[in-house]
């Protein structure tokens, strides 16, 4: 696997032979939290083994409580020294809103498992564009950093609805040779979608090896369409509905080049030019009724609490 050199990164977490591996103390404690906006927040979870094993592009599945759902979240960062992983979460549904309200520093997840999925293919690409849209800005960061560490020329393009939603600009500037922020309302950087940013970058650089795009399906689809005429390899990270995340249920099947793939084990990274995004979007809505019902019930109990 060629992982051994990386594994020695953090000697103090290396369980010596004869000693018990550290996964025994399973608490999944939240050690830091940052709120980026009224819907987006960051959690840092202490899990030294996971931090040591994590690679860019991989995801974890979390359960806030024993009665909770299993929610797949792509890793936004991992710190092998501190033994932590970072997740950036958008409070949109019942479970994520509940997490936003209740998960403070010092509290714990019921379950965190991972890293899952195949790591991103970071080889010898010389020049890459890392594109993040909205919440997808967070998970594209580990890839941007890994490309930079491998010596690639990294162009970062991130998009938000407005300046007030933006986060991690300094973090990206650190690992990017060029960095461009796009906002829908023009309150920061370029006014327009990330695809405008990609067009600018492609116009400026004729030798781009790969575009990595992470964000909502419609944004990834738009990115893939932007690069298609230029025949630039475009990798997207898919996050369909999952249950186990280990290839066992087939709920996360996606159509890629007319073949069935399971995002949890065959992905989550796929060739953006081959992904059937319409199918992905349709399958993401398969629990729309139930999501609405859960949300309604949750809001009701919340009001009752107040």
């Amino acid at each position: 696997m060629g992982q051994n050199s990386e594994l020695e990164h953090n000697e103090k977490n290396k369980p010596g032979s004869g000693t018990r591996p550290e996964s025994g103390a399973q608490t999944f404690k939240i050690v830091a939290r940052e709120d980026f906006s009224d819907t987006t927040f960051l959690l840092e979870i202490l899990h030294p083994m996971l931090a040591r094993a994590a690679r860019p592009g991989q995801f974890v599945i979390v359960m806030p409580s024993e009665v909770g759902e299993r929610i797949p979240l792509t890793l936004a960062d991992f710190d092998r020294e501190a033994g932590t992983i970072t997740l950036v979460i958008q409070a949109t549904g019942k479970t994520t809103k509940d997490m936003q309200q209740n998960l403070a520093v010092g509290s714990s997840f019921f379950s965190v498992v991972g890293p899952m999925g195949a790591p991103s293919d970071i080889r010898d690409q010389r020049k890459v564009i890392c594109v993040g849209g909205g919440l997808g800005v967070a998970p594209v960061f580990p890839q941007a950093r890994a490309f930079k560490e491998k010596g690639a020329y990294v162009i970062g393009v991130v998009g938000f609805r407005s300046q007030s939603m933006a986060f991690w600009q300094a973090k990206f500037e650190n690992v990017c040779d060029e960095f461009l922020i796009c906002t829908d309302d023009g309150s920061a950087g370029l006014k327009g979608l990330v695809t405008e940013g990609i067009k600018l970058a492609i116009a400026k650089h004729s030798d781009i090896d790969e575009v990595v795009a992470i964000g909502p399906p419609i944004m990834m689809q738009a990115c893939a369409e932007t690069t298609r005429p230029h025949a630039i390899k475009t990798t997207v990270s898919l996050n369909p509905i999952m249950v186990d995340g280990t290839g066992m249920c087939g709920g996360c099947r996606v159509k890629v080049g007319d073949r069935m793939k399971f995002a949890c084990v065959d992905g989550p990274d796929f060739d953006g030019h081959a992904v059937d995004f319409n199918d992905l979007v349709n399958r993401l809505h398969r629990f729309a009724d139930e999501e609405k019902a859960a949300m309604a019930k949750w809001s009701e109990t919340c009001r009752a609490r107040v």
């Binding site: 004869g18 996964s23 399973q26 379950s111 498992v113 890293p115 899952m116």
Partner: peptide, 23 residues
């Protein structure tokens, strides 16, 4: 017997690591 849940072998650590590192 100890049972460790939430552990995806192959990804959190490999079979090789179980022998080489975890003892």
């Amino acid at each position: 017997v100890r049972i460790e849940c939430n552990t995806l072998v192959g990804r959190l650590f490999t079979i090789e690591q179980m022998i080489d590192e975890l003892g």
